[in-house]
């Protein structure tokens, strides 16, 4: 049942464990008192760019996400700048090397400059089946912006993948909206980092608590 749950999540745990290891090595998991973008305070912070901008981290993130997608009909992968930038590039590169190229796009949040709309850079056409990615999901705001931009462009979001799910409502929000959501790692409010989410339904999987 452990195996079937891992398969159900569709994650290659070797890649996920490697990413967790790299995240620890590069100091991506921080402890302290942080103010998150939503205003919430947290004793933990995941600096995703430390992973995605490291050579080894970029490779394993690209591989983990590509492996998740290679059996799915996907036209493009994208996300909100700037967290998604190195992720989509890594996936695009791995996809080329694997012979199943997946073009990428970036959603710029123009709110920051002009307060009006979002702009899409890169490869996206109306009717595309797309995957939305981000380094971390907390309340879901950034991911939802990217989803909305893709859907406004006439695309279908077939999957959402993040590196770290902080389990602060964002992933539940997406699942409630019917999106196929996957996270490589889970950062729990306690600060523990797991690769496989506990199965609350069957109770047959225990979250593997990996040392940080």
């Amino acid at each position: 049942m452990v195996t079937s749950s891992i398969l159900e999540l569709g994650l290659n745990t070797e890649s996920a464990e490697k990413i967790r290891e790299i995240a620890n090595e590069v100091g991506a998991f921080l402890q302290g008192d942080f103010t998150l973008s939503s205003g919430r305070k947290s004793g933990h912070y995941f600096d995703g760019k430390k992973v995605t901008l490291s050579p080894e981290g970029a490779y394993w993130v690209g591989k983990a996400i590509f492996d998740e997608l290679k059996e799915i009909d996907v036209d493009a992968i994208g996300g909100l700048a700037i967290g998604a930038d190195p992720i989509v590039s890594a996936v695009a590169l791995v996809s080329h090397l694997e012979g199943k190229p997946i073009p990428s796009f970036i959603v710029r949040d123009e709110r920051k400059e002009h307060g009006t709309k979002r702009k899409i850079e890169g490869h996206l056409q109306e009717g595309y089946r797309v995957v939305i990615v981000d380094d971390v999901i907390t309340t879901g705001g950034s991911v939802i912006k990217a989803i909305e931009a893709a859907e406004e462009a006439g695309c279908e979001v077939v999957k959402v993948i993040v590196i770290v799910d902080r389990h602060e409502g964002g992933s539940d929000k997406l699942k409630d909206k019917g999106y196929d959501f996957t996270s490589i790692l889970h950062l729990w409010p306690s600060g523990e980092v797991t690769v496989v989410e506990s199965s609350a339904v069957a109770g047959e999987i225990k979250a593997r608590l990996l040392p940080r």
Binding site: L30, D33, F34, K112
Partner: peptide, 18 residues
């Protein structure tokens, strides 16, 4: 407001600093 936001965008923001 936008300038402050840009300072704090995509970086860990200690509560004390905010």
């Amino acid at each position: 407001f936008l300038d402050i936001a840009r300072h704090w965008e995509e970086v860990p923001l200690p509560v004390e600093e905010a």
